[in-house]
Design a protein around this nucleic acid. Structure first.
Lengths: 335, 335
DNA sequence: TTGGCTATGTAAAGCGCTTTACTAGCGACA
DNA sequence: TGTCGCTAGTAAAGCGCTTTACATAGCCAA
């Protein structure tokens, strides 16, 4: 690999001149510029980014920490982040932690080790304080999608409360009064907020939230299936379920099918996320759409302005949208 | 950030000693070791990887170039690669190219610029020779999933031919004789091979492949929908369709529904890939499962042995599997 | 003729680490 | 007593780049 010095020798100037020329830090006469350009072309020189980074301390790259890249929601988010970052001339390194705390820590460490200029952090766990202490005080991190409590970093979230409110309201409008909620992990911000939106809608309609009808566990298909079993095996099952993620909704569908029931005739179902498959399942799922593209874009924009020293808003809430498909119908009249 | 020298000063030894100690290149008496360890702990020292890389030329990291991280197939592959690489102590940097040639080139350049030790390369395009020349001669690249022609690198593929053969055979067994194929881009390796498996199965059964029943375009839902329209609007439509990807199959389903027909009653359908949603659609899709986990693992293993100087097999074919669900039934008897 | 200014560069240090020599001191052995 | 070999290190160069501070030549004005 040719180095800067090789180019300098070839062009008959000093390495300094070449370096400064390449970084637009010097005005050279046309003749010299031509000689340098020719030398670069001849040797097929490309600067060693490692060396440049070591020297400047900047990397023109950001890291994206995601809990599970195989999850379409995070995968789409990652794609959006890449798009936006590239548009701004930054590279993105994606890391997938599988929700393991040590993997998250390792990723943060790597960033701190000046690999990258900044970090977009996503997690799907309730932090026990480890992440918070590791991240506190950093001026180059943006938190996306799910909160890390107790840390003063710019955050980009969606309107979880409003989404759940709208979903619940939609069910109520259709005539449902017996509405259950299946959510993700207890104490996770998105879960709390979706639960509160649900409760608010119920309250406003004068409906009571039955304790046994709020099931909190995991944002997974398996948990959705299990929770639906509990709900539907009861003597007085709900007529509608608000699933706090499309994964959960899929699990619910499985159970409903297993019990020989049908959606939306026997039970109505609303999801959350609008993952790509939501439109493809049977029946197509009515769900709350998260603006994945905008989330990714905004996270990058905020991170970059953070890096430039202009603090972005400390918290941004993106609106969600109710996408009506075919998993909701009026309840069967009670016998 | 504390440096190696800081640690050395603190411990009362030379930087050399600390460096060699940290890299197990020296035997020190317990007392010295303790002093160094204490200094490291006290200063919360962590080595600057950038500097180490610059110095050693090694990075303990590999890159994964994927066409589209938002595609569940590639996302799962990426997850598998990460898992295996981490198990071997390597970091993974994922880049998503969106099928753009320049993005692929940029990614390769970045790797070549000694960012990472090696590269797992995936593409979804037919290379025009650019990638081939860029990659030729490299001893640290493995090609995964789809071929890049004219370049002598270790390759990890699945048995595309066998998969299509088995899918077609399954349809024939069920009584179908009028079987169409909808495939991805013309000239792409996987497409060629799947087409050949299909043709072979048809031949062996004494069935003819009608030219108008082989539609090659894109591995997308839109193309699947469009191709299905062409097929089903004809006066003599096929009774079964082999879709060369699950995305295509989804498109076919859309069209079938739009025409007021039903799967598998009016038309049978087999997909390819077994993406996560294949089991969730209506009806659950019979498809060919690709061993995504094994593909990712093997690619990493081969890359690492390449890096160690032991050349892996030049080409590995992984077996695929027919997953029978509910999108295939015997054809309706012709009137 | 001198002084100063501009144009056109260059020398050298430094980023934080690794690695290849090399050495001081000590005990043992012939 | 000399020297061999071992222990416990160290000095210094180098990875490829950036950057600060300085240098030289030419030219013009006073």
């Amino acid at each position: 690999m040719p180095t800067l010095s090789d180019v300098a020798t070839e062009a008959g100037v000093s390495p300094t001149a070449v370096s400064r020329y390449l970084n637009n830090r010097i005005d050279l006469p046309q003749a010299t510029r031509d000689r340098i350009d020719a030398a670069i072309a001849k040797l097929d020189y490309r600067p060693n980014l490692l060396a440049r980074r070591l020297s400047t301390g900047k990397s023109e790259a950001i890291a994206l920490v995601t809990p599970d890249i195989a999850n379409p929601f995070f995968a789409e988010l990652a794609a959006a982040v890449e798009r936006q970052a590239h548009a701004s001339g930054y590279s993105v390194y994606i890391t997938s932690t599988q929700g393991h705390s040590e993997a998250e820590i390792r990723a943060i460490r790597r960033m701190a080790d000046s690999h990258v200029d900044g970090l977009i952090m996503m997690t799907n766990r309730v932090d026990d304080g480890t992440l918070a202490t590791l991240l506190s005080g950093r001026r180059n991190v943006v938190v996306l999608d799910e909160d890390i409590e107790g840390v003063a970093l710019p955050r980009v979230f969606v309107d979880n409360d409003g989404g759940a409110y709208r979903a619940t309201h939609h069910l109520i409008e259709k005539g449902h009064r017996d509405i259950a909620l299946i959510g993700g992990p207890h104490r996770l911000m998105s879960v709390n907020e979706r639960l509160s939106g649900y409760s608010r809608a119920m309250d406003e309609a004068g409906l009571s939230v039955r304790p046994g009808w709020v099931l909190l566990g995991d944002y997974t298909r398996d948990y959705g299936a299990a929770a639906a079993s509990v709900l539907l095996d009861a003597t007085e099952p709900p007529t509608a379920i608000l699933a706090c993620s499309d994964y959960i909704a899929i699990g619910v569908m499985q159970t409903v099918r297993r019990l020989g029931l049908s959606i939306p005739n026997d039970i109505s179902l609303v999801g959350f996320d609008d993952m790509a498959f939501a439109a493809l399942v049977d029946p197509p799922l009515t769900t709350i759409r998260q603006p994945v593209g905008a989330m990714g874009e905004l996270a990058v924009k905020h991170l970059l302005s953070l890096l430039e020293g202009t603090p972005p808003p400390s918290e941004t809430r993106l609106p969600v949208e109710l996408v009506i498909r075919q998993s909701v119908a009026p309840p069967i009249a009670k016998s």
